[in-house]
Design a protein around this nucleic acid. Structure first.
Length: 462
RNA sequence: UCCUCAGUAGCUCAGUUGGUUAGAGCAACGGACUGUUAAUCCGUGGGUCGCCGGUUCGAGUCCAGCCUGGGGAGCCA
């Protein structure tokens, strides 16, 4: 007999047919005559109830059906006599694939703290919460590819290992095959990377953007979606050392086109989740974050507020409250400032544009005022910056001058600069932190709980 | 990295001005129960009080250092 997944089974209307299901036991209840097993196979947050007449089965086997054990069950799909489920399986054959010692199995029928579950990340996908989060995470990854594919964007695979340290987005992890107990040195005492695998110093990427631009200036519209690494000593609920990022890059888009895409993209993902993950979202709304569904609905049914950095600073200066960090034109906005704008002043997602060039990256297009660049940050409630992007500087001379002003390694960027020499084009792009998006959509409080195996300072277990 | 709070049973926590044998709820285990929904009822077992020093007749409790975790900040997606 062919195995049927529980998700399919629960929507089945064919009562009285023989079925085969396989899954893990969530709970077992019952008396000495009859037992009820809640079985879950990960296909849905819902369990199928297996009803077994104890007299039909080996007593030792029945005793070994405990929370966490794995079963293969054959039976008849019937209408449930009890409340709480429409259908259930009247079992006539049970095979115990894997026992699960109840004295040492850490997952209980009761709820657990997120901190405890993080310590057992190998088992936490078996909980309702992480099952829901991981299914939603999958759906979002799929929706991202679907969205871009339907709009003619090409998925570009940018390198994970990079020889450039000019991306300027934070500390990098080194990649080397050198013997760390016997490092070859130059005469001046610096490391001789000519002996290393690539013959030069290499790192894990902090962004695929620069290579993404190369793709956009050939294919028109591209996106990247891959892992990204930051060796920052960041210990917050919003940071990971290894995370996934989506970076679309588009030729012939100005900053407004860029903002339109970002807003449409975010709303599409939320809408996709609401339409395709309703049971998981309902569970998270009930158990993890009460206002979740309302917040998601609110975001898709309202326009994001768009204003310039300069306008934002004026609002903050007029605000009747004390700031821990001073507000002033030219200073970067602090978390408290962004939170005020998003969560109190506008109470909507906000897109800030045209930041002072001194606080933004070298590749952003310089405005004619000589002071600001065509940057955009999308700020979300509870998350802060979820997207950072810009129109890129397409003028060779202005870009080169900016690189020299900032003292960046010009010769490492020769290939990037050549795109501005050979058929340059106006273009734009942005980066979306995948896990930050999942945090928003699931209502989870900590980014470490929306990735299966989080990598953070002092933590690379599993 | 800085500020702050915490670490006691498998989990979540209580533990008085330092005092004799460290507690509760849940879980687990044993038993009862003919249909349960985080089942219910009765019973049982379970502790290197994060680690290492110090003060003291005596430390879960006080002090110092370290480790781990939470929250906030910085860095950023």
């Amino acid at each position: 007999m062919k195995r049927i997944k529980i998700k399919e089974l629960l929507s089945s209307t064919e009562k009285g047919k023989e079925v085969l299901v396989k899954g893990w036991v969530r709970t077992k209840r019952g008396s000495k005559n009859i037992i009820f097993i809640a079985l879950n196979d990960g296909s849905t947050i819902n369990n199928i109830q297996v009803v077994a007449d104890v007299s039909l089965f080996d007593a030792e086997m029945v005793k070994n059906i405990t929370t966490g054990s794995c079963l293969s069950v054959q039976g008849i799909l019937v209408e449930s006599e009890g409340k709480g489920q429409n259908v259930e399986i009247q079992a006539f054959s049970i095979e115990l694939y894997g026992t699960c010692d109840s004295e040492t199995y850490p997952l209980q029928k009761k709820g657990h703290s997120m901190e405890f579950l993080r310590e057992i990340a190998h088992l936490r996908p078996r909980t309702n919460t992480f099952g829901a989060v991981l299914r939603i995470r999958h759906a979002m990854a799929f929706a991202i590819h679907k969205y871009f594919n339907e709009r003619g964007f090409y998925y570009l695979h940018t390198p994970v290992i990079t020889g450039s340290d000019a991306e300027g987005a934070g500390e990098m992890f080194h990649v080397t095959t050198l013997d760390l107990t016997n490092i070859p040195l130059n005469k001046d005492g610096s490391v001789d990377f000519s002996e290393d695998f690539f013959g030069k110093q290499t790192n894990l990427t902090v962004s695929g953007q620069l290579e993404g631009e190369l793709g956009a200036l050939a294919l028109g519209e591209i996106y990247t979606f891959g892992p990204t690494f930051r060796a920052e000593n960041s210990n917050t609920p919003r940071h990971l050392a290894e995370f996934w990022m989506i970076e679309p890059e588009m030729a012939f888009y100005d900053l407004t086109d860029n903002m339109d895409l970002a807003e449409d993209f975010l709303k599409y993902l939320i809408r996709y989740a609401l339409e395709n993950c309703s049971e998981d979202l309902q569970f998270l709304n009930n158990m993890i974050n009460k206002g979740l569904l309302d917040r998601l609905q609110f975001v898709i049914s309202n326009d994001f507020i768009r204003l310039t950095y300069t306008e934002a600073v004026e609002i903050l200066e007029k605000a009747s409250r004390k700031w821990e960090y001073p507000v002033g034109w030219g200073r970067d906005l602090q978390a408290e400032h962004e939170r005020y704008l998003v969560e109190e002043h506008f109470e909507k997602p906000v897109i800030l544009t045209d930041y002072p060039k001194s606080i933004k990256a070298f590749y952003m297009k310089q405005n004619d005022d000589g002071k600001t660049v065509r940057a955009m940050d999308v700020l979300f409630p509870g998350i802060g910056e979820i997207i950072g992007g810009s129109q890129r500087e397409e003028d060779y001379t202005r870009l080169l001058n900016r690189i020299r002003e900032l003292g960046l390694p010009e010769k490492d960027l020769w290939w990037y600069l050549e795109t501005r020499k050979f058929g340059t084009a106006p273009h734009s792009g942005f980066g979306l932190g995948f896990e930050r998006m999942i945090v928003f959509i699931t209502g989870m409080a900590n980014i470490r709980d929306v990735i299966p195996f989080p990598r953070t300072p002092k933590n690379a277990e599993f």
